[in-house]
Amino acid sequence: MPPTGVAIRDPREQLFAAAERVLLRAGPSALTSRAVTADAGCAKGVLHRHFEDFDAFLAELVRDRVARIEARSAALCAAAGTGDVADRLAEALADLFESVAVAIVGLITSRDELRARLRQFTPVGIPLLTEATAMLAAYLDAERALGRLAADADVGTLAPTLIGAGHLLFADRHATPPTTDAVRKVVTTVLAGALP
């Protein structure tokens, strides 16, 4: 661990990456400012120099991950009209839930103060899952506009159904992640009747 006073490069990203490692390794209950700074290899004061308090740090971590979903959403919508719709959705779900997203959802649901801080950015729903649902809805809407999804497909129901099913597939962080075929099977089952 570097001694106090030694500068670290891009401390926010280093601290965010450390928080993700702690979440993945030990879960939301193990996530403390001490655990994060120890994993980042920096003094505890580094976190408090960059964030008002630990919940402010966690809120910024979630907002940073939400911004990544929004960037993925643009790329997914740009891919509309290409490839197989079910394959694209299965890839999007795996990309979302194979990351630290499942652990972050657990963190959000277990910390009242964090949820309260995030309400200003995500007033309804569960932050991260709400934005992920919007990502899939935008993609499904784009595919529907291109005629690759039935004109009467209920995107407002399909998107949260896919997110919920995907979340359940990946929810056990100690189990082996589901196979690509398992994720695709869920997607094709949810989309049954929505594909022309």
Rank of each mutant, 00 (worst) to 15 (best):
R173T: 13
V187G: 03
T130A: 15
R72P: 01
T188Y: 11
A43S: 15
G125W: 04
L162Q: 04
A159M: 07
A175T: 12
R21Y: 01
G156F: 08
A90K: 08
V183M: 04
T130Y: 08
G45V: 04
E13R: 13
A19M: 05
P123S: 10
A153Q: 02
H50T: 10
L136R: 13
V46A: 08
R65G: 02
R9E: 11
T179A: 11
V36C: 05
L58W: 10
I163T: 09
G83K: 03
L31F: 02
I69N: 06
D154N: 09
D95P: 01
E52Q: 11
R68M: 09
D53V: 07
D55A: 14
F97E: 09
A138I: 08
A40I: 06
F54V: 09
L96I: 09
G147Q: 06
F57Y: 08
T4W: 14
L89N: 02
L107S: 03
L24K: 14
L128H: 05
A165C: 04
A159S: 15
T32C: 00
A59M: 03
E60N: 13
R25H: 06
I126F: 00
D172H: 02
A67F: 05
V190N: 03
D141I: 06
L146F: 05
G164D: 08
A67S: 12
E131G: 10
E98F: 08
T122V: 13
R184T: 13
G125Y: 06
L47N: 06
M1L: 10
D95F: 01
V6F: 12
G41Y: 10
L140D: 05
H174Q: 12
L61N: 02
T109Q: 15
L58A: 13
D181R: 11
V124E: 10
D84W: 00
T130K: 10
L15D: 02
L168Y: 07
F54S: 05
I69W: 14
A116V: 00
T176Y: 09
D87Q: 13
R72W: 06
V85G: 08
G81P: 12
L96F: 10
A165H: 02
L47C: 01
L195V: 12
R12C: 13
G125D: 01
E131V: 08
D181W: 03
D172P: 00
A175W: 14
L93P: 00
V6Y: 14
V186H: 01
